[in-house]
Simulated assay, not measured.
Amino acid sequence: MIELNGKTYELIEENKEGFEAEAVKERYSEVLSKYDFIVGDWAYEQLRLKGFYHDNHAKAPIDAKISCFQDYIYEYCNFGCAYFVLKKMQK
């Protein structure tokens, strides 16, 4: 569990020990709070964060739904990179 800007997130997937809480806290931006999931990946020792919605979110584009996060990893991230997925917890 990690708290970011008053919201609690649970680590639900991690690849190659990609999750570093302090790096996430430094990199986190308020714009990510609208998403249900945050995917973080490492490239050239720099953390990138991207938000995704639940699959049942009616107005979200298909590539912004969490079921497509693996496509994002394969298409936009370095091959074999370390990554993680955080899920926003409901109060």
Rank of each mutant, 00 (worst) to 15 (best):
Ile2Leu: 11
Ser29Gln: 13
Ala58Asp: 12
Val85Glu: 01
Glu10Asp: 11
Gln70Arg: 15
Glu20Tyr: 07
Met1Asn: 15
Ala23Leu: 07
Cys68Tyr: 15
Ile62Arg: 13
Lys59Met: 08
Gln70Ile: 08
Ala60Glu: 14
Ala82Asn: 01
Ile12Leu: 01
Leu47Lys: 05
Lys7Asn: 14
Asn15Ile: 02
Gly18Thr: 05
Gly6Lys: 11
Lys50Glu: 11
Tyr72Pro: 03
Phe69Thr: 10
Ile38Ala: 00
Ala60Asp: 11
Val39Trp: 05
Pro61Leu: 11
Arg27Ala: 07
Ile12Lys: 08
Asn15Asp: 02
His57Met: 03
Gly80Ala: 02
Tyr44Pro: 00
Glu3Pro: 07
Asn56Thr: 10
Arg27Val: 02
Met89Cys: 14
Phe19Gln: 07
Glu10Lys: 14
Glu22Tyr: 10
Gly80Asp: 06
Tyr83Cys: 03
Cys77Phe: 00
Glu14Lys: 08
Ala23Ile: 08
Tyr44Gly: 06
Ala60Phe: 15
Asp63Gly: 04
Ala58Trp: 11
Glu3Phe: 11
Leu11Lys: 15
Phe84Lys: 04
Leu86Ser: 06
Gln46Asp: 14
Phe52Glu: 10
Ile66His: 09
Tyr83Leu: 02
Asn5Pro: 01
Glu20Trp: 03
Gly51Phe: 09
Arg27Lys: 10
Phe52Gly: 02
Gln90Tyr: 08
Gly6Asn: 12
Glu45Tyr: 12
Gly80Asn: 09
Phe52Tyr: 13
Val24Cys: 01
Asp36Gly: 02
Ala58Gln: 10
Lys87Ile: 04
Lys65Asp: 15
Asp55Asn: 15
Tyr53Ser: 02
Trp42Cys: 03
Phe52Val: 02
Ile66Lys: 05
Asp55Gln: 12
Ile73Phe: 03
Gln46Trp: 04
Gly18Trp: 02
Ala21Glu: 14
Lys91Leu: 07
Asn5Gly: 15
Ile66Trp: 09
Asp71Pro: 03
Ser29Gly: 05
Thr8Phe: 06
Tyr9Gly: 06
Met1Ser: 13
Ala21Phe: 06
Glu45Pro: 01
Glu26Phe: 06
Met1Phe: 13
Trp42Phe: 00
Lys88Phe: 00
Ile12Phe: 10
Lys87Val: 10
Val39Ser: 01
Leu47His: 09
Ala23Asp: 13
Gly80Leu: 00
Cys77Asn: 03
Ile38Met: 00
Phe52Ile: 01
Val39Lys: 04
Glu17Gly: 04
Ala58Asn: 09
Glu26Cys: 01
Asp55Trp: 12
Asn15Pro: 06
Phe19Ile: 04
Glu22His: 12
Ala64Ser: 15
Pro61Val: 10
Val39Ala: 03
Arg27Ile: 00
Ile2Phe: 09
Ser33Thr: 13
Lys65Tyr: 13
Asn5Ser: 14
Trp42Arg: 00
Tyr76Asn: 11
Tyr35Glu: 01
Arg27Met: 07
